[in-house]
Amino acid sequence: MPQLNKDARHTVTMTLNGDEVSGYAEPRMLLSDFLTHEIGITSCHVGCEHGVCGACTVLVDGTVMRGCLTLAVQAEGSTVETAENLASDEGELSELQLAFKKHHGLQCGYCTPGILMSLTAYLKENPKPTEEELRDMLSGHLCRCTGYVGMVRAVLDYCENRTD
């Protein structure tokens, strides 16, 4: 890859939720801003913008990443997944999302997409976490509404009864 000039906008192309998308980004543009402002995704929420709150968490090539600690140009050619990818094309919620709904795993919902993306990656590695493991993993996300209680119930219920 050639050196990208700081003052220019560069084409960035990626596979986002199964579709190829492109937009323009200066090297300093954060992936979270690129997805929101260039592409029009609404689930990559920016909270703290320094990697602490976890609201902007997305998957890049299957790996959990903070959108605000990744540059758009770094994701060139990558496969990116956001919470828009979870429901079916017809808008039917995934089983994990339905469990969140059933157990009141969200209130204002600002932290929820990031948490769902973390869980998407985490539950592939550890499909039946204990409550302690789950709470440890959720410590990487700040939720100021729920106290995590409903969220933990939702995930444990989902892991027990999932059919997907």
Partner: peptide, 20 residues
């Protein structure tokens, strides 16, 4: 806040990185 502008170079070896 957003970062101040910088150039960006993705390299494929340590030699390329130290040259840059």
């Amino acid at each position: 806040m957003k970062p101040k502008a910088f150039d960006y170079l993705k390299v494929s070896s340590a030699e390329e990185a130290v040259a840059a």
